[in-house]
Amino acid sequence: MIEVRFHGRGGQGAVTLAELIAQAAIKSNMYAQAFPSFGPERRGAPVQAFLRVSDRPIRLRAKVYHPNNVVILDATLLGVVNPSEGLKEGGFVVINSNKSEDELKNLFPGCNIAVVDATHIAKEELGVPITNTTMLGALVKASNIVDIEMLEEPVRERFGVVAQRNINAYKRAFNETKIIKA
């Protein structure tokens, strides 16, 4: 079972990101579970979402405390929450950032890091700095949690006429994500 925790701000689509991966996994005949950090929805406040993907039925109803990977949609959260808390050994911090490799290594000592400037890609591909679909590509690159081709159908179902732009964004992020091993 792979467990992922997502950190974003309310309105950035962290829950949708978790949901799209879950749908792609379910379409691939795997089992998956995606859910928000339960609570009132507050735009701009730090929020979390959770994802489990497994080849066997998932019988667990609790938050993810020891994720295999964490995904950080918004680098301004770094001073507010500790995104790598509980991260399993060998796991990845997947982060939207334009910081240098050294800066990131200092921020997440001992962690594997996958970094992409998703805000830049989202602005160019979508015209808005909403990074959730772009970060799909970064997470898949770091974790291989689903086959990237399997994302297309859930993204098309969810985004309709603007789906292609989102697909372009996550494919570009997949190619541009830089892997920094611990």
Partner: peptide, 12 residues
């Protein structure tokens, strides 16, 4: 059905 831990979960 349990609130949130069931109602708000995306699952197969």
């Amino acid at each position: 059905l349990d609130g949130f831990s069931l109602s708000h979960v995306i699952e197969p």
